[in-house]
């Protein structure tokens, strides 16, 4: 019955932010293609990737917007915060400056997304432990203080990459289950796919069934 990639119940929108060269696109590539992209070119504006994951038995489509880290693209990238359900904030553990800029990225994320957006802090390039410039503990403290989820990952080896995306989805899904996310609200970055598996109305996740017409939409 299932027809592979088209059968899912939710769409979660993610945005990946962080300084230039911290490996945002590589993380995305590793996640969607399960491959490391060496010599990744600088992102122009925004790029886009999707993958379906399963959380608590629910198939969820992740729609991931990978933004350019360069300042000159801010005019473009800031339009994509709107309605993101998850924000992955990336720094490079071997470059302290990228860590130091986190607070400004966080400010952006907080200002431009909604309060329920799950923000996940990622220390990328964990495979380069020898060149480490930011300790795990320090970043962990920062994350805790700001209420962020945190993991160190490596887009090169793929270590923790899967976890980062899926943990974020779990947290978002948890929020939906807890009723913190109103599926009627447009800004949540969560879209409910009303009837991916056949007839309509066969799922009732949080009693937001009426959202099919006007709500369930987050990509604005």
């Amino acid at each position: 019955m299932a027809s592979g990639p088209y059968n899912y119940s939710y769409i979660f929108k993610y945005i990946i932010i962080g300084d230039m060269g911290v490996g945002k696109s590589c993380l995305l590539h590793q996640f969607t293609e399960k491959k490391f992209m060496a010599d990744c070119p600088h992102t122009i504006g925004v790029e886009f990737g999707t993958r379906i994951v399963e959380v608590s038995g629910q198939k969820i489509k992740l729609q991931i917007w990978d933004t350019a880290g360069q300042e000159r693209f801010r005019a473009v990238t800031r339009s994509y915060y709107r309605g993101a359900a998850g924000a992955l904030m990336v720094y490079d553990i071997t470059r302290r400056s990228t860590y130091n800029h986190l607070s400004s990225w966080l400010t952006d994320a907080r200002n431009l997304t909604n309060p329920n957006t799950v923000i996940f802090l990622i220390g990328n390039k964990s495979d380069l432990d020898g060149q480490r410039d930011v300790t795990y503990e320090e970043a962990k403290t920062f994350a805790d203080e700001n209420g962020l989820l945190f993991l160190e990952a490596s887009a090169k080896t793929g270590d923790n990459v899967e976890d980062v995306f899926i943990e974020t989805a779990k947290k978002i899904y948890q929020n939906i289950q807890d009723g913190n996310v109103d599926l009627n609200a447009a800004d949540t970055g969560v879209q409910l796919k009303p009837s991916a598996s056949g007839g309509s109305g066969d799922r009732k996740p949080t009693g937001n069934q009426s959202s099919q017409q006007s709500g369930g939409k987050g990509c604005c």
Binding site: I11, S195, S197, G199, Q212, Q213
Partner: peptide, 12 residues
């Protein structure tokens, strides 16, 4: 015409 149209297997 909904924001996120349903696409049932049947329709496909």
């Amino acid at each position: 015409t909904s924001d996120l149209p349903s696409s049932s297997l049947l329709l496909r």
